[in-house]
Design a binder for these strands. Structure first.
Lengths: 202, 202, 202, 202
DNA sequence: GATGAATGAGTTTTCATTCAT
DNA sequence: GATGAATGAAAACTCATTCAT
């Protein structure tokens, strides 16, 4: 929103969105390298060349699709999480939402968990930027708040962020690649329990 | 494991190993798609065509390289872990070794954390096989043992496996992509503390 | 010359001229193949599509631009040359004007000397027409007159035309490509001297 | 000859030459931009990709073809011209050879006169190098020698070079584009006469 | 078995041209 | 007439794979 230098008409915007939607679909199913621009174009009901009116190249289309996705997800999360009173509740809510979103949209889960990393030099191209940064730093802020609020003990926020994001990411990957063969909700609850109470005998 | 149909002479075996070694090197540095067979061949000091005497295709070379790697790592781990007496010690040792191995060989860390996933349809082609499966199931067995031994509480072993592997995987990815800018050892200790004791106020 | 089938209003004519002017500019700087219609349109302050209301295609635009240019140049030359009394003076004046025009407008020199030839099949498409024909035949007529007037000896007019045009053309090309590094005027005087007196020892 | 870093086998050399020959043929008939690599490959009886084993890209193929051509022509010229005793004879011989070579190989004449200039940024890419330089400086040296030998009067050698090369170049262009409709030999004699004696009445 | 020259399928991207508004 | 968004044909180039030597 407001990222484009040129103002786009409603019609153009919807065309751009159609392309992004198609791109996520195709990237999710085929991965970056096997995804063909012509396939995305067909799915979006536009000509191949039209894609290049809105995006500089294939790589840029992937990044744009990703950016829009993360932004949308964060907007949705922020508004829902804001309703929670305590930091711990917000943190718990975040995990619920994270799981919920991807349960409803497995293609997006797959896209974020796997295909995104297939972009050439994804990490090399964005060494400091790291496109997931915003999402990750959002997690860290929730953790810091919860510590301040004294609802979780004073642990290293970065360490917990790594645990939360890494666990979620891999959980999603497993669930995606195993064709949703297990209950994401169940698994989530068990994981939250472990992170909450630890593994030690009381 | 009877993987090779034909018995290979020592000379051939060393040639095959040279290719695998070169493949890991090149895949690690360039990723699957940007890695060139000719580059691997040059590094292994063989002709391009020779690679096809030992491997069916590029994909197969990746998988073979990966298999060999995981196997080597597990062999090393098993022998060292066997010396530990309790399951909990073995589990702790595993995490130490996991971090230690990748600290010493960042290229391999990068290979496993990132490049491996760039294989086209990696997960689709090997849905049941899942190349990480052996490694992951090794973790799960360690956990089950520790529970039996009553040194950790009776939690869902799959859930903890997801936490352990996911956290480790993401930690590695971050460390690799951020050019080893933070201490892996330090972070590991903090993470282990959280997983051991949980995040709740005592 | 009745080139345009439809009568154009003044407004349209100025629009057409603006396009031609922009076309010469862009063709001169980028050459035929690298010149973009959209660039010409922007420079002429019209929409891309508008160009196709006045010209059939890119090739046609080049030819039209060229035609206009040659016509303008010849009109200017004729009026100035008409003031000279003898054929030899007219001939000398022509060479002066030729050099003068391109000295003042190097982009046009470049256009005529180099870019014009980059049109696909320029010579195949217009075998008899030869777009330079008018300009060249003007030279030849000046020569024939000078011979009749007995101010130059009775030589083959076509041969001298080839010498004059070829020498001028190459001189221009050299001067254009060498970024005007030498004095066109100086060189012209030396060339005229040689053509006038020959190379033989007296 | 000896330009390539890697030594090529006879077989490879003949393949490379076949490609160059085909390239000159195709470039001559279609011009640089309309010439298709696939067409050149077909004519040379090799696969498209094979061309890229010997040349970096299309532009490079054009330049290589050109270089080889000029070199071959100069070698032939030098050996034949060396037999002439006086500088003036050598100079005259040069013009004879120049015309003779292109009379026998019109495609090459066309290539050098027209298509060569269609390479993108031909002059911009080789501002100082100017690939025709060697040929042109050869002409200039012949002229300087003739002046020293006192067989032509002491004129500006650069100016005469421009006249000779420019005239020859345009003569060739005319002859090529007009499908050899006039006698090159005849025209040459007339031109030489004019340059020798000048245009003035004795 | 080993070689590496040769192959040719495959895909992004450009941009002249069109046509609905 | 004018616009400019949309079109889609076209082609250079790469590189995994093959196979004659």
């Amino acid at each position: 929103m407001g990222k484009n230098k040129n103002i786009l008409s409603d019609k153009q915007l919807s065309k751009k969105n159609a392309i992004i939607k198609a791109a996520i679909e195709v990237f999710s199913h085929n991965g970056f390298h096997k995804a063909k621009i012509s396939h995305i174009a067909k799915l979006a009901n536009v000509a191949d060349g039209t894609i290049y009116l809105y995006f500089n190249n294939k790589e840029n289309l992937l990044v744009s699709a990703f950016d829009g996705l993360i932004e949308d997800i964060l907007i949705e999360m922020r508004s829902k999480i804001a309703l929670e009173k305590t930091a711990l509740d917000r943190f718990t809510k975040f995990i619920d939402l994270h799981v919920g979103i991807f349960t409803k949209q497995p293609a997006i889960a797959r896209f974020l968990a796997i295909e995104l990393r297939q972009s050439p030099d994804f990490y090399d191209l964005y060494p400091s930027y790291n496109p997931l940064k915003e999402y990750i730093s959002y997690i860290e802020r929730l953790i810091i708040d919860a510590i301040k609020e004294n609802s979780i003990r004073s642990i290293d926020s970065k360490a917990l962020t790594v645990i939360i994001f890494g666990t979620m990411d891999f959980l999603l990957t497993e669930w995606s690649t195993k064709k949703q063969s297990f209950s994401l909700e169940d698994m989530k609850d068990k994981i939250v329990d472990i992170i909450r109470w630890g593994i030690r005998i009381k």
